Computed example of a mutant assay.
Amino acid sequence: MTDTRPAEDTSRRLALLWDPPQPSTRGRRATLTLPDVVAAGIAVAHAGGLEALSMRKVAGHLGVGAMTLYTYVPGRTELIDLMIDAAFAELTLPEPGAPWRDALTRYATEHHDLYLRHPWILQTNMWRLPLAPHVLDAEEAGLRVLSEAGLPAGRVVEVIGLVDSTVRGLARAAVAEQAEGSSTGTSNDDYWESMSEFWGTWFDPARYPTMTRVWEAGGFDTGHASFEATFQRLLDGVELAVDRAAAEHGTTGRG
């Protein structure tokens, strides 16, 4: 006998995202709504990270019993799907037809800022984001920007993957630095200042000649580049791909 439960679970999971049940207009009015439950889940994740998220804690945040919560959402997995989609609804995505470089900057900046507001999203498997309306809206916008720029389909997917990975990596680094600074009370500059003894006592220029040359040439003077500056360097590389595609097809890429 075939076990149909996985398929049923998937169908239920998708239906909750695309056709959530509407509040009943009959009988006594419900004290909670599905958006209330999702907002509570986000609040719990903000307070303690995704590892702290449980149906029991969300129910406690709402002041109801856990069994009441299960009448709105089947479980933690489905709740996280809904939380991610609610967060992605905050994105202001680029409009069709905008110059690709400006549009891709908007796309990346919006995602970067979203992850800083909701760092718990970065604790999920970003390769398996839910097939949710606002998540797909964001993906559609990114693909559209690069497609309108004139890149072939395969390169569109490669480049948006590179953009997404870069944005997530920079956001993770920023979140980790914020958390470290908050927990220790030490800024990034103060931390490296506290390690200044290392360079005179332990660092060996003969072992690290390239690092030494770069240092002496002032390569480290600017410190860590901002997200905006780093992303502009990435866009320079994307522009080369757009120009190459335009040359191959005899068109002019919209910058």
Rank of each mutant, 00 (worst) to 15 (best):
A45Y: 06
D137F: 02
V163Q: 09
E239H: 13
P205Y: 07
F203P: 08
W120L: 04
Y72S: 03
D164H: 10
F220D: 03
W215P: 00
R76L: 11
L104K: 08
W127H: 13
F220E: 07
A138Q: 07
H61F: 05
P21K: 12
A87D: 08
T186L: 11
L69V: 01
H134G: 01
A149S: 14
Y107L: 04
P20M: 08
A108T: 04
A87M: 02
D102Y: 04
A217K: 12
V242K: 11
R207P: 01
V38E: 08
D19T: 14
M67K: 12
E239F: 07
L122K: 10
R207G: 07
D85S: 03
D36E: 10
A47E: 15
G223W: 03
T31D: 11
E95S: 13
R13D: 12
E177R: 14
L79S: 08
G41V: 06
T10Y: 09
F227Q: 05
A52F: 05
I42N: 10
E158H: 10
D81M: 05
V38F: 11
G200M: 05
V167P: 03
P119W: 08
S147K: 12
A39H: 08
Q22D: 01
P133H: 04
L136M: 14
A138W: 14
I84M: 12
P152R: 10
T222S: 14
Q232M: 06
L14T: 12
G60A: 10
S54E: 11
Y208M: 15
L240V: 15
T109D: 05
A45Q: 05
H118S: 03
G27Q: 09
M55G: 14
A176G: 05
D81R: 04
G161W: 00
R213N: 10
V214S: 07
E95T: 08
P35Q: 06
A87C: 13
R12N: 15
E228G: 14
T212D: 07
V38C: 02
E177P: 01
F88Y: 15
A45G: 03
E95Q: 15
P99N: 00
D221F: 02
G250F: 02
M126G: 01
A86L: 01
T124I: 06
G253C: 04
R13P: 09
A89K: 07
Q123D: 13
R5N: 02
R26L: 15
D236M: 03
S194F: 00
V135N: 13
R213D: 12
G161N: 00
P20L: 05
T230A: 06
L93N: 06
A40R: 01
